[in-house]
């Protein structure tokens, strides 16, 4: 049965379809890279807030992480999208950034904060796995606190967290499709539009192949980094 709609696609429709999906893939990729760009450092910040010596700061970040992880990402996207209007009465059209609609910014904010929360827990586990002796040796050798963190601790943390980060990053590739909920023109939204206009499931299959290839490359890249860091054990 399901081959009927496939057969209905002929060659002169196939190429434009792929082209449209590729432009959607471009948007998905932008969401992906911007999310990583913001979420990876932000996660580190949240992890350090989570380990702060002030209890209030710790609790704040703990609450933040628990809300980010305990509610659906799609719901978070809606909240980031609508809250300027409902909470502050700012018309969403005023929030366009460099001529780009606010919905795109909302997607980036939502993804970045959500993934930062997940990354922060990975960082925290990684930081806590570093033996205390490393800090003590660094202290006695005269390193300052920030030198200790950036030269001694963080490089070892990065090596340890590559596998869990790889998992998150692969999930992120697939999660970019959630942006369809704000009608952002990423690949899944495009696929849905074509599918309903042309009554075919071909776009979903092509999009699936594209997601798979995207993740294949991502996994390959992460494996490459893991290999680069395999020059020592520990």
């Amino acid at each position: 049965m399901c081959f009927l709609p496939l057969a209905a696609v002929n060659a002169d429709k196939f190429l434009p379809m792929v082209k449209q999906l590729l432009s959607g893939l471009g948007v998905s990729a932008v969401i992906f890279f911007l999310t990583l760009l913001f979420a990876l450092p932000l996660g580190l910040l949240i992890a350090s807030g989570r380990r702060s010596k002030w209890a209030a700061v710790r609790w704040f970040f703990q609450l933040f992480i628990s809300v980010m992880r305990g509610t659906p990402l799609m719901l978070q996207l809606f909240i980031w999208y609508f809250c300027p209007f409902y909470l502050f009465d700012i018309p969403l059209s005023d929030l366009a950034f460099c001529g780009i609609e606010y919905r795109y910014s909302a997607v980036i904010i939502g993804f970045s904060l959500n993934y930062a929360a997940y990354f922060s827990e990975i960082y925290r586990a990684g930081i806590e796995a570093i033996p205390r002796g490393q800090y003590e040796a660094a202290f006695v050798l005269g390193y300052s606190k920030s030198q200790t963190f950036f030269r001694i601790i963080l490089p070892q943390v990065i090596k340890r967290i590559i596998p869990p980060v790889t998992n998150e990053v692969i999930t992120l590739v697939k999660d970019t499709s959630l942006a369809f909920s704000l009608s952002v023109l990423e690949m899944f939204t495009v696929a849905r539009q074509i599918a309903s206009a042309e009554t075919t499931m071909m776009p979903f299959i092509i999009a699936g192949v594209f997601y798979y290839i995207f993740n294949f490359l991502v996994a390959g890249f992460m494996a490459f980094i893991e290999k680069r860091l395999a020059y020592y054990k520990g």
Binding site: A137, L141, P155
Partner: peptide, 28 residues
């Protein structure tokens, strides 16, 4: 003072040379 620990506490991501030179390069 300097300190030598029971379980060495060398920096595993640094070569032997870098274990020796990194601190004085970076601190002094």
């Amino acid at each position: 003072f300097g300190m030598v620990f029971q379980n060495f506490n060398l920096f595993p991501h640094f070569s032997v040379m870098r274990n020796l030179t990194d601190a004085p390069a970076c601190v002094r």
